[in-house]
Computed example of a mutant assay.
Amino acid sequence: MIRSCILILALLAPLPVMAHNVISAVFPSGSDIEGEVGFSNGDMAADLLIEIFDVAGSKLGESRTDGDGFFLFTPSELVTHIFRGDLGAGHVAEMMMDGAEVAQIIGQSPGAAANSAAAAMDISAAPAAAGSAGLSDQTRSELATMMRNELRPLRQELTAFKNKSDFQSVLGGIGYICGLFGLGFYIAARRKIGSSA
């Protein structure tokens, strides 16, 4: 009986677990779609091929993540974009951006065919407005890149926080399991005492 108890306790001993969830997200970034792919333990997916599809499954393009797990894709079609990256070992990151959001990135509404002339006029007026505001296109691009780089760590921390397992929940689960085994041993001992009397 003692040997079986020791064996059961040895099997129930907590072992280091390397469980992790895939973290993935896409968001607008100027005229591009920026995304990130990684794991909840903080490891980011570097040099990962990201394939982009529409809802029908037609391939729209592909991108690669950088060393920090981020990728950029410039949309050219006003459709819903589905981003997929195979991280191996059964982990597949899949993110989706709705066609309406893509239309905002491209700078057109979903019914933009009728408004293309107005959009062309707005685009031609943009350099003059930028010049009058004192910012060139290059300066605007550099500012957007700086903002994107500054916001990346915040996005990573927020995503990791959302996917983090609550330590108290894990300890509570282990406590319940130990309690159930204790109850089982108590009942078994009571039966053994009852049968020997």
Rank of each mutant, 00 (worst) to 15 (best):
E150D: 12
E94M: 14
I52E: 05
I82G: 00
N163V: 10
L171I: 09
H81Y: 08
L60H: 03
L180F: 01
Q168W: 12
D66A: 08
I193E: 12
G184M: 08
D86W: 11
S24Q: 03
A144R: 12
S124R: 06
A188W: 02
F167M: 02
R84W: 01
K164F: 11
F39I: 07
P127V: 14
L87H: 11
T159H: 02
M96A: 10
A10K: 00
D137M: 11
V92P: 02
V37G: 03
A120H: 08
A129N: 13
S141P: 01
G179H: 06
S136L: 11
T159G: 01
K164E: 03
M95D: 09
L180R: 08
Q168A: 12
S165I: 15
S4N: 03
R140I: 14
L171K: 01
A129H: 08
S63F: 05
F71C: 05
A129C: 04
K162F: 13
G69C: 08
I187V: 12
S165D: 09
D166N: 12
D54G: 04
F73T: 07
G179I: 07
R152L: 04
Y186E: 09
A129I: 15
P14L: 00
V17A: 12
V26C: 05
A13L: 07
V22F: 11
Q156T: 14
D43P: 00
S132T: 09
L11N: 04
L183G: 09
H81M: 03
D137W: 14
S109G: 05
C178E: 04
Q108E: 07
V22M: 06
L11E: 04
Q168P: 01
F185V: 09
A103W: 03
R84S: 03
V22Y: 14
G134I: 15
F53V: 10
F70G: 06
P16L: 06
D47P: 02
F185D: 00
A89Y: 14
F39Q: 00
A89N: 06
L158W: 13
E62M: 02
I2M: 07
N21D: 14
S29F: 09
E142T: 10
I177Y: 10
S136T: 15
I33C: 03
A133W: 03
T139R: 15
A118T: 13
A13P: 00
S195W: 06
L9V: 05
A117T: 03
L171V: 08
N41W: 15
T74R: 07
V92K: 04
S165Y: 13
L143W: 13
S116Y: 07
S76D: 00
G107A: 11
L7V: 00
L7M: 05
R152C: 02
T159P: 01
A13K: 01
A117L: 05
A188H: 04
V55S: 09
G131S: 02
I105F: 09
D47F: 07
A189Q: 01
A119S: 04
S29G: 06
G35D: 01
P75F: 13
F71W: 11
F27T: 13
L15C: 07
P28Q: 09
Y176D: 08
L7D: 01
L171D: 07
E157R: 13
G99Y: 05
S196H: 12
G30R: 06
L9K: 01
A128H: 06
P75L: 11
A125G: 10
S195D: 10
T159E: 02
D98Y: 09
L49Y: 10
G67C: 01
I2A: 08
G57T: 13
A13I: 09
A19R: 06
T145A: 15
K192N: 06
G173K: 14
S29M: 09
